Simulated assay, not measured.
Amino acid sequence: MSNILAGLFEHHSDYKKLEADLESSGFQNSDYIVYLNDGNHSPYMVSVAVKDHQIDSARNVFSQNTVLKTYLFENMDLEQANYIDIKNYINVRNKAEIHNSPDVRIKGSTSGMDSEVKF
Rank of each mutant, 00 (worst) to 15 (best):
N60Q: 06
I55D: 01
T66E: 14
S42K: 12
I84R: 15
Q64E: 07
E10H: 10
E116Y: 09
S2C: 11
D114N: 09
F62M: 04
D56S: 07
H99Q: 11
K95A: 11
N100T: 14
L8P: 04
I4S: 01
A49C: 03
N37T: 14
Y71F: 15
L68V: 09
V50K: 01
I84V: 10
D21S: 07
S25M: 02
E23W: 07
D31G: 03
K51I: 09
G112S: 08
L8T: 04
I90S: 04
A20E: 14
K118D: 04
Y44G: 02
S2V: 08
L36P: 00
M1Y: 12
E97L: 10
S101V: 07
S47Y: 01
K107P: 05
L72H: 13
F62S: 02
Q54M: 03
K51Y: 06
N88H: 09
S111L: 12
L8Q: 06
Q80Y: 09
A96R: 13
T66C: 13
P43A: 04
F27R: 08
V104R: 06
K107C: 07
V92W: 12
E23A: 08
L22P: 01
S2A: 14
D52A: 04
D52R: 11
E97Q: 09
I33N: 02
V92N: 06
F9T: 03
S111A: 13
I106A: 11
S13Q: 09
F62P: 00
F119S: 09
V61F: 04
H53W: 01
E23S: 11
G26Y: 08
E79C: 10
E23L: 09
K95N: 10
S101Q: 14
I33L: 02
E74Y: 15
Y89I: 10
L36N: 05
